[in-house]
Design a protein around this nucleic acid. Structure first.
Lengths: 210, 210, 210, 210
DNA sequence: GATGAATGAGACTTCATTCAT
DNA sequence: AATGAATGAAGTCTCATTCAT
């Protein structure tokens, strides 16, 4: 009962932890993200998360009402980030081709830089409650529509093939992006920027008028 | 009495059984596929599967050694199907552009026709044991390489842009295909063939020399 | 209803149990009844119940969907018993005074013979879900009304004091009965029949015309 | 962030806070009484009590050593009140019949006026520690004996039926009183005084010589 | 071939309580 | 006098799997 002044991990069940730094909620989110990406939401127990963060279960439930609140928070983080960036790029003054190319490259780069979030996003959506799922889908939908708008703009401007369905092109491209998590390796031969450049190039070639 | 009455003398819990036809193992696989796609592997209990198939747990364990054997079997089914078809198309005598276009369209059509399998494939891989996972990845890899071979062939033949990385193009395209499960709806406005035609078209535009 | 005399000794929590006889669901109900009466619903853990019954938690949840299903079942048992007996007595051909006296004595005797159920009834109602609670109250209400009917019949027949509120008399008497659990001891000086005779006598004196 | 916001600086989650007035310990006791009566001791968390009282947990533990100290204090309050009043009534100079009638009516009135305490008394006794329980029972016993004394006095004085067991009569009557909490409603048709008059009347009829 | 009662481990969550501030 | 982050133990329930029949 009297707590050890050592402040070490001392309490039961965890081993020698590197005692991660930072505030508790942030540590919990960081470890949860890592673990969810590594082995999936359902194969990660709350116990593993708190052990990795160097706290106890009570601490987690002090900050998060339930395990899936962690998921929700992780989703919110990446959605906010990507939405903001797309908004900035899409509303710049550059020609539409350049804006589309940059938006495409950017979503690839941020997806790779936050590859854990990207993986989790598509692996674990079904673990959210119906309302949370609806909210995430709605936000995702807005993102999709903003991106599609760029394609339509290019078609109206006579730069992109008019017979392509803008909606389908967006789904086509985002499928590629969302699957980065299944094959991209940070320690592989390709940098994030290289992949971004190639993906962006492929997209532009697929819609541009010859 | 019991809320979740498994009970009684064997007359229990029929309920909304859709009178499943066919042999028991096939019924089990069919219902498992439907349920895994609908709510994920881990959110589907063995009890739900056997109830949907109209049998009892003992029957399931008579045919399958464990729950993840169902998953493994589902994976095997779709992998065999797609590998066979790709093989047939790629080795035909048509020009390489036509063969790539047809292969691309075909994988879209079969993915949509087996949309449940497609969904499960990427949602639930981490539930397989390490060995099974390795086996699936290896098979997937062969498929990937056969497809990439077509692109390289087209490049050597001077029909496709030589600067594109064939590997990356394949990952780009398969990402799009694998994500069909997240947005395609059978009751939506697009037929499988329409999506296939457009996706194939986008791929060809993205690699063909102008 | 009469309690299994098997139990007895069991002070240990697990391991070498006296292996209570009978079917598993009945054993679980019997032990749950004993423990709930002894220390209250909430101070009794599922673990304690299954240990007393000599089975595991899984077995309990095989038969009962939740802990409070045990409570519901216990309630149902005693309600059915008392309702049946009151019905039989009230509809006999004896004079109304005799029928009321017998009904009063009978509810005392059965309450004492099932003293654990009686205790639980009033201690733990708030642990039922809203719907179950409503069902129990409705059944209890029917019982109350049948009993009150006897008093009203006696008033109409000119045998009981007309100024007494039959409703209030019923509540008055049942209060006494329901509180038997707080003071009656099987090993005390009074037999169930003695208490029944006195309570019945007090009730009759309180309503009879002088 | 946290679903169950324990709340920021005091601006969080007011909602339906009835702007509690008075000193902190009194507010805590008042809210605890209300909540215990409404949903039971064990279904009421310390967090709910402090939220209702508009303070934090630290404040509660500053004034009360433990959760069940609240219960003990509530018990003490109602026991003191009823003991004092009985003492005053029983030792007056009126004839014994009048004193018994008045004591009976008074305990009904004070029970109804403090209906929450009455409910808690019998619902939550088993949450006290053994010593506290013993103390409460002893105090209760004294009350019972004082009341029984009135009945015996009336029997000796030749006003009450000598064959009735005074002890049993007291248990009979207090059962009725203690169960008021299960059926009496402040917004119902009966005033506290009406119930008191009828109960007192029933008691007197049940013991008085014809 | 098939049953379903029973297991046992582990999951998420709650909560009274403590203590540095 | 009061805070609220953090603890740690205990709670209820789920579920894949086994085995005697």
């Amino acid at each position: 009962m009297a707590r050890d002044a050592t402040g070490g991990t001392g309490s039961g069940e965890q081993g020698a932890r590197p005692a991660p730094a930072g505030a508790v909620p942030e540590r919990l989110l960081a470890e949860a993200t890592r673990l969810f990406a590594e082995r999936g939401y359902d194969r990660t127990s709350v116990q593993e998360i708190v052990a990795a963060a160097g706290v106890t279960k009570g601490a987690l439930y002090h900050y998060f009402g339930a395990k899936d609140d962690l998921l929700h928070e992780i989703y919110g983080r990446v959605l906010r980030l990507q939405t903001e960036r797309l908004e900035a790029i899409a509303s710049s003054a550059a020609p539409v081709e350049e804006r589309l190319a940059e938006a495409a490259a950017d979503v690839v780069v941020t997806s790779i830089e936050n590859l854990d979030d990207t993986k989790i996003f598509f692996l674990s959506m079904h673990h959210l409650g119906p309302d949370q799922q609806k909210a995430v889908r709605a936000e995702r939908r807005r993102y999709h529509e903003r991106f599609r708008g760029l394609i339509e703009e290019g078609q109206r401007a006579g730069r992109f093939r008019p017979e392509a369905s803008a909606d389908l092109v967006a789904d086509f491209f985002f499928g590629s992006v969302h699957h980065l998590g299944t094959w991209y390796r940070a320690d592989g031969p390709l940098s994030a920027r290289q992949v971004a450049a190639e993906f962006s190039d492929l997209l532009l070639h697929s819609v541009r008028l010859p």
